[in-house]
């Protein structure tokens, strides 16, 4: 039994599932990195994702094209980000209150829209919500391991990993990324170098909103062709956690998101063995806490150092 389990854990199927399941997390959190780097205490990831999921389904429903669906989802994230920015940057609302209100309102909003538009509660399944079709690359067919891993995925899955790399390039190789990081690190210094802090805060927020919208659209359009109440089920918070632990570095964040995705995949592949999947799901969090603790112990600066910054 143990060997069977171990075999399943490292089987290509498990890795393939991890790649797929971490896709929305990666897309969302890579975009969220740009928001994290400008440090404004935004917690509303769940909201952006859930609303994105709804509008992804809706866009695909009315147009019959998953790409349009995703675009509508991105647009919804953009609009939410605009409102958020207006409230927090210009009307000086407390970012935490707005974030929590956003998250709670998202559930209500999407469910209401579900009722208003499709006149149903709980779940809406319809073939008119067209999912992305899977891509097959013939040359991979012959390679056994890579075939399971990289074939039969939808476009967004490939996009997620490209997105992570693009995110890294933008963050660390362009003037824009450098300035954005500076704005988050020490706004005063950025200002003294002639950089508009507010402009970069806006840009970071909008990138995050659009990415989370796109990430949300993965869920209804990944083959199931349905939208259900609270479809994201905390995935937005997972994105946020990945970002916080990865400290806004797109590649590190991607690794953490992959870890969460892998744990998620484990719960699926191990379900046949009748094993406690909760423990498996718990492992990444415990591991991350342990890593944080280790970093903390390494940086321990003596008992009197209490007023300093936290990590």
């Amino acid at each position: 039994m143990l060997i069977e389990v171990l075999k399943t854990i490292i089987s290509p199927v498990a890795f393939a599932a991890a790649l797929r399941l971490s896709c929305p997390l990666i897309i969302g959190s890579v975009g969220g990195c740009f928001n994290e780097k400008i440090s404004t205490g935004n917690l509303a990831y769940e909201c952006f994702m859930l609303v994105g999921a709804f509008f992804g389904a809706y866009g695909s429903f009315i147009s019959g094209s998953p790409v349009i669906g995703s675009l509508v989802a991105v647009l919804s994230g953009f609009v939410l980000a605009l409102i958020y920015g207006l409230l927090v940057y210009h009307l000086n609302c407390n970012a935490m209150i707005v974030s929590i209100a956003y998250n709670n309102a998202a559930w209500a909003l999407t469910t209401l829209l579900l009722v208003v538009i499709w006149n149903t509660r709980g779940q809406f399944t319809d073939p008119r919500i067209v999912s992305y079709s899977t891509l097959d690359m013939d040359f991979l067919k012959k390679v056994p391991f890579l075939d399971t891993l990289f074939n039969n995925n939808i476009l967004l899955v490939y996009l997620a990993y490209i997105y992570a790399i693009i995110g890294h390039i933008i963050m660390y190789m362009t003037p824009f990324g450098l300035r954005l990081r500076g704005v988050g690190s020490y706004p005063m210094a950025a200002q003294s170098a002639g950089i508009s802090v507010r402009k970069y805060r806006w840009i970071g927020l909008i990138i995050m909103g659009c990415s989370m919208g796109l990430a949300g659209s993965y869920m209804p359009l990944s083959g199931m062709s349905l939208f259900s109440e609270n479809m994201t089920r905390g995935r937005g918070f997972l994105c946020l956690t990945s970002i916080l632990v990865g400290k806004g570095d797109p590649l590190k964040t991607t690794v953490i998101a992959l870890l969460f995705g892998y744990a998620n995949a484990m719960t699926l592949v191990l379900s046949t063995f009748n094993l406690p999947t909760q423990i498996v799901s718990m492992l990444p969090y415990v591991a991350v806490l342990a890593v944080l603790l280790m970093v903390g112990i390494r940086n321990y600066k003596g008992a009197k150092n209490i007023t300093g910054d936290t990590i």
Partner: peptide, 27 residues
């Protein structure tokens, strides 16, 4: 303890503990 002695922001840790709590109880 993580905040007081090792200056790890409770912002992250408490949120992670949320996930662990639900999974732990469900288990």
């Amino acid at each position: 303890v993580m905040r007081l002695f090792f200056r790890i922001n409770e912002y992250i840790t408490t949120m992670m503990m949320n996930f662990i709590a639900t999974l732990f109880c469900d288990f």
